[in-house]
């Protein structure tokens, strides 16, 4: 974990090192995946952190499918190893759309799925329907060993139409469907953003 009172290896305060790393990594992320694209608004790490009321790192203790009206939802219980944002809690409960129940199944493309025993860092927000993952699959980083992976499969990022901008010639962009970081780095980046909020861009402000 990051100790903000200590010094980094190069003699700079840790926050400075972390912030520089955040900026560097975000630059790489933006260079690789600057598509603003599709049906979910693209959220970079500061955007995810800003949206999340709770960020937790833990292991899935249970997955329970239930029917809510016509929907099948999966209620996830995450045993929290660490709460990176929000009030400390021994476990986190949230729901994702989709699941299997009584021979039927429902799928909502783009929504993350969780399996019992799986370790993850999750970004949660409060909605009218309870705690949900921020930005669908964007808000889940699966942890395997010392590495955390965000998978964007199933997500589409749309283009905002703003007057003449829509007349630009199409540009090809490279978007990564999978981003992997050391989990310690991810947590350090999250903490750095939590403690020094980075302003959201105009495109990230909800009405």
């Amino acid at each position: 974990m990051l100790a903000h009172s200590s010094k980094g290896l190069i003699g700079m305060p840790w926050p400075v090192v972390v912030r520089a790393t955040v900026v560097g990594l975000l630059s790489v992320l933006l260079a690789l995946g600057s598509a603003q694209a599709a049906l979910v608004k693209r959220l970079d790490l500061p955007g995810l952190v800003g949206r999340a009321a709770v960020i937790g790192h833990g292991r899935v203790a249970s997955v329970r499918c239930l029917r809510v009206g016509g929907r099948i939802v999966s209620e996830i219980t995450l045993s929290g190893d660490r709460i990176l944002k929000g009030q400390p809690a021994a476990e986190l409960k949230f729901r994702v759309l989709g699941g299997a129940l009584d021979g039927l199944a429902q799928v909502v493309p783009g929504e993350p799925s969780f399996a019992v025993g799986e370790e993850a860092v999750v970004f949660l927000q409060h909605t009218a329907d309870g705690a949900r993952v921020v930005g669908m699959s964007q808000g889940k980083w699966q942890v395997i060993g010392q590495m955390a992976t965000q998978r964007l499969d199933g997500l589409t990022f749309p283009e905002l139409i703003v007057g003449e901008a829509n007349e630009r010639a199409p540009e090809r962009v490279n978007t990564r469907f999978e981003t992997t970081l050391p989990v310690a780095t991810l947590e350090a980046m999250i903490k750095a953003v939590v403690e020094t909020p980075i302003g959201l861009t105009p495109n990230e402000v909800s009405r």
Partner: peptide
């Protein structure tokens, strides 16, 4: 106020199918 999902989602499709 009727959107109950993540505010960052523009649209989604719920598909129900026979799993068994």
């Amino acid at each position: 106020g009727d959107w109950i999902h993540s505010a960052d989602v523009l649209a989604l499709t719920t598909v129900t199918f026979c799993n068994e």
